[in-house]
């Protein structure tokens, strides 16, 4: 028996996407996207600028309303279509089971609020009302993303770009989400900081058993983090499969172009 079929029979997918489409007027944002994401799996989405990666991610995370299709998430009460559910329920998901890491940490952080307050916000949003415990947890999480505990009362504006991105990750993971959406998490960082961040992310994803969807145009990022890969072009998924398989043996002409465009140092 094929082991992958066996896995599908015993495990419910965490996220099932069916025929998801989003149009901007006559233009295609993304069209007819289908995939299943299983618990603990990391899916990479790559493609050139304008290929619909970010549109797809926004539709999945509920920031944009898709025109067609279903996004079925395995909530604690069973599978639910997040496109159809009410805004209140979707926001509850967004601050408990989901996390969203923005490309620019300034979009995902509250720049006027201290690092501790940023990490604590999600805890307080789900009902934590004990200052000491919130603070302990914030300090613990700052440690996990390699930010010194004495920076807990500093504002993010006093942090470097890499630190801001790590703070954003801590802020998102503090409530123990099951699914993390990441939009170019390493964009705008220099390569040595990128490497540290990727190392950190890989550790956290494995340690917490997170499922993640990572949108990027950096093939090194998906090589390192993603189990499976989806290649998008012009709003359509042109190829998908295991990461190493897609990158080492690209079938579609666009994937071949993409893989061969990477500069070798």
């Amino acid at each position: 028996m094929d082991t992958r079929i066996w896995a599908k029979m015993t495990t419910q997918p965490l996220l099932s996407v069916r025929n998801l489409s989003k149009f901007y007027g006559g233009r295609i944002g993304c069209a007819d996207v289908n995939f299943d994401l299983f618990p603990g799996e990391v899916l990479g989405i790559v493609g050139e600028s304008g290929s619909g990666k970010s549109t797809l991610l926004s539709c999945l995370a509920g920031h944009l309303a898709p025109d067609r299709g279903e996004v079925i998430f395995a909530t604690t009460e069973g599978p639910r279509d997040t496109v159809q559910m009410g805004e209140a329920a979707r926001r509850r998901l967004a601050r408990t089971d989901w996390a969203y890491v923005h490309q620019n940490p300034r979009d995902g952080l509250r720049m006027g609020v201290s690092a501790g307050g940023n990490v604590g916000e999600r805890l307080m949003a789900v009902g934590a009302r004990h200052y000491g415990q919130i603070r302990d947890k914030a300090v613990d999480w700052l440690g996990r993303v390699e930010i010194a505990a004495d920076r807990v009362d500093d504002r993010p504006s006093a942090f470097s770009g890499g630190m801001q991105q790590r703070l954003q990750i801590a802020r998102n993971l503090v409530t123990g989400p099951r699914l993390v959406f990441m939009d170019e998490p390493t964009g705008g960082l220099d390569v040595s900081v990128q490497a540290r961040l990727l190392d950190l992310l890989r550790g956290l994803v494995r340690e917490m058993g997170l499922s993640a969807i990572i949108v990027t145009h950096d093939l090194a990022v998906v090589r390192l983090l993603a189990d499976r890969l989806m290649v998008m072009k012009g709003g359509y998924v042109v190829e998908q499969g295991l990461t190493d398989q897609v990158l080492d043996d690209p079938q579609h002409e666009y994937t071949q172009l993409l893989v061969s465009s990477v500069l070798q140092v």
Partner: peptide
Amino acid sequence: LEDYGLMHVKLYEDIS
């Protein structure tokens, strides 16, 4: 949506 977590962030900032 009764999304009032932010209100406590202000109080948290006060205490910190």
